[in-house]
Design a protein around this nucleic acid. Sequence first.
DNA 1: GTCCATGCAAATGATTTGCAGTATC
DNA 2: GATACTGCAAATCATTTGCATGGAC
Lengths: 151, 151
Amino acid sequence: MVFTKEVFEKTLKANGMKLTNQRLLVYQVLSSCPGKHLTAEEIYECVKADYPDIGLATVYRTIQLLLELNLIDWVNFDDGFIRYEIGSDLSNDQKHHHHHLICQKCQKVLSFEDDLLDELEKNIYQKTGFSVVNHKVKLYGICKECGGKLN
Amino acid sequence: MVFTKEVFEKTLKANGMKLTNQRLLVYQVLSSCPGKHLTAEEIYECVKADYPDIGLATVYRTIQLLLELNLIDWVNFDDGFIRYEIGSDLSNDQKHHHHHLICQKCQKVLSFEDDLLDELEKNIYQKTGFSVVNHKVKLYGICKECGGKLN
DNA sequence: GTCCATGCAAATGATTTGCAGTATC
DNA sequence: GATACTGCAAATCATTTGCATGGAC
């Protein structure tokens, strides 16, 4: 499912919400940066280029709205900022899971698509009766460019 | 390696730091709560029972110190508080890895010991050249008591 | 006695909120 | 025209920091 302006508008209307320039622009900035992890401040700066009057509070409020509509995801790299990225394909319940690889030398963040955790999650269910429905995985290490080696 | 008061003192001295009642008490509170995830405020309240004059700032400073000495670990459950727990066995480089299972119904947090991520990490190295040295894994779902079922 | 450590109060800084004006439908 | 949305400024709140006093060695 491709999320055009029209689909975005329909999603808002379906929830009794109004389409505004500010909301559209915030959504478009995130849509045009897949895989980037933008802070609220960064989104604010991007939108301001097209719409100088937008306020930071509106950006924060729009982010909350997009999160509630499941259109975006958040990540916390524990550096004092919450970051946001456009959601992966949500056409059905199974999300495209991706993990974040964080290089401890250059701070670069890579994404890694994977479903290897299925086995771990089955294992957890068998041993503890806890049924996993979602996960957040951050892997810290050294990237290829910085000379990563397996032990 | 068992961390007694003496070993703690030696570790401090080795780094040119002084042993104080406050530091010992903060360390003891964390030591006596393995598997619990305490906020700075909670640690502060616990220590205050034995030592009413301690200041919250001292607790925060001691936490930083214990983190730098690798005696404790931190977790962020994204609820506005950073939480701390006594470190697992650090006698050699290989840490005891444990993941956190967070029940979305009752908010309970379980720990799960595991090294199944080794396979995932090998996979990542082969595909991307990124070598993982550490990870933080949070698994969200429903616990046994709350009626967890596999899909 | 020398520094390091502490307690207090004030500062910080990302995010949230109140409110009066503005835009959408 | 009603009501939801916005921008601004002020509030929030966990954590940090400055500074003068106190304690460890």
